[in-house]
Design a protein around this nucleic acid. Structure first.
Lengths: 293, 293
DNA sequence: CGCGTCTATCTGAATTCAAGATAGGAATTG
DNA sequence: CAATTCCTATCTTGAATTCAGATAGACGCG
């Protein structure tokens, strides 16, 4: 059994047919047939049921398929390991949920590209669940998502562990003074982590029925809160100067909703390139310096 | 880059020489040379420094080596996955530390061989640290060790989580009545988990300086304790009948030493054969039924 | 310098692999 | 029911690769 055999096997399984597989493999059908038959005879099992309309995996073939995949990625990782001489270089594809991007991404990327100028970094903004899927499918090398994450194939590092505060206009002395009829919940995204937690926190304070106001950037949100249009929820660490300038007022929160953990997740068996490793280091350093609380 | 190339590479790296590698690979040196040179030209890097006394890995080669290993085990796992049709069969090599073996192994193995008669099980008895190394080196498919275990390449399942009690002769009403000059600490193995914890517990009760008595089997230990020769430490679950018969007296323990967790650890990337899976199931069932507390 | 040990290269034979041609089986269709 | 179509299996031939052996060259050692 060889890696090339498994590539052929994988193509046949994926296309459920030797002709189609041959097309993908840039060869002819007879060679595919021969290779599959040799593989079957070597393993002593049939891997496909032959039908008039193509091939279908037998149970043994179905058991083999994920391992064929694993061998392929192991080979890919081997190649990358040889190429990677320790200096961060080449492409780095990561993801982030929107709020982390708005709060920290600029700072993290800025400090990273200074430390690793030869890396071409690309950041995809999606919701946490979409990001997790993309990481699992190896479309991203890692992503910032809201914690906690429990998955056997993923490993996550806590990058940010931040205390949350409710932000209101400067003249709102207490959350109880919020007028449910006028004030709005101002968030980056409907249904986001911050939206859900803000709603839950306000409910705990007996404030219900606030309308939603969805705004695209942090600056606009803070501006609207400062103007008394509503309330928002943010990590304490990022609103220091605003509060000192008296533009907004921060209200501490108690209970299970009072903190947010941001993890950087990646596949456990994914290749840790120098670029990725440098990015993680850089992010951790940034987080240590940027979040005072 | 192919799996066969990596096998050659691995052999050369291991033997630090092409002649020796050729010997292992059942071929001639010229073929090994050709293959390595082709691999190097494909990767665009030299993998070995040529010396007059053999070959030495370059940094790039050193980076490749562990991945070559990974590709090989991925292929092995693939082969095993095809062979394994779901009915537990074939060899199963596991390990256990002594105390778990003495307390539970008979029961677990008995219930397992009934459920999976076609499996040839072999159990190696070693200390926890030796077992961990053997599992990491893939010499064992898994092992019972004392928890907790933290290692990125290992995954552990808690099989037993037992409350510990100190066992004395039936006429010792209180641990304080133990005579440090006469009573001994009776344990399965010097320096074992149970030995250390027993010592720590006795110290907490102000009892120090007990001599050690190391005995090979649980029955003998219980017999000696019953005869008033000393004290031992055991999970509460296994001494029920003995206590009811009045042969020994159990003394509850408080504090951090009062419980013992036994994990079954295995390599995260190891192949989970049907035999191993069945053994884990069987062990969990056994543990659920055998440990009442 | 001769010897032993190592890698590099060359060469012809053996093996394997690629591509095309062909056959056969099973649905589909007119 | 025959023609058609889409599929896999097999055979053949030439190309490519791999193998084993022979030989050359580099280096250290006594």
């Amino acid at each position: 059994m060889d890696a090339r055999d498994l590539k052929v096997f994988e193509a046949v399984a994926r296309h459920a047919g030797m002709n189609r597989a041959a097309l993908e493999l840039n060869t002819v059908q007879s060679n595919v047939t021969t290779r599959i038959r040799l593989l079957e005879s070597e393993l002593g099992t049939t891997l496909f049921e032959r039908h008039t309309k193509g091939m279908k995996l037998t149970p043994a073939g179905a058991r083999l398929l994920p391992h064929a995949f694993e061998v392929r990625t192991a080979l890919e990782n081997a190649r990358r390991a040889v190429m990677d001489d320790g200096t961060p270089r080449g492409p780095l594809n990561i993801g982030s949920r929107k709020s982390t991007a708005a709060l920290h991404l600029t700072g993290m990327v800025a400090s990273f590209i200074e430390a690793a100028p030869q890396v071409d970094i690309s950041v995809r903004i999606e919701t946490s669940s979409v990001l997790l899927d993309m990481v699992l499918e190896r479309k991203l090398e890692g992503a910032f998502v809201a914690g906690p994450v429990e998955h056997p194939d993923l490993v996550g590092d806590v990058i940010f562990d931040e205390e949350l505060v409710v932000l209101t206009g400067p003249d709102v002395a207490d959350l109880a003074h919020i007028d449910p009829a006028r004030a709005k919940m101002i968030v980056l995204g409907k249904g986001s982590f911050y939206h859900q937690h803000l709603e839950s926190i306000l409910t705990q304070h007996g404030i219900k029925g606030l309308r939603l106001l969805e705004l695209g950037t942090l600056e606009v949100i803070v501006g609207c809160v400062s103007a008394g249009l509503g309330v928002t929820l943010l990590p304490k660490g990022v609103i220091g100067p605003l509060q000192r300038e008296g533009k907004v007022r921060a209200h501490n929160v108690a209970g299970p909703d009072c903190r947010v953990q941001t993890l950087f997740v990646r596949r456990r068996d994914g290749f840790m390139s120098s670029a990725l490793s440098a990015f993680l280091d850089s992010s951790r350093r940034y987080a240590a310096s940027a979040t005072i609380n």
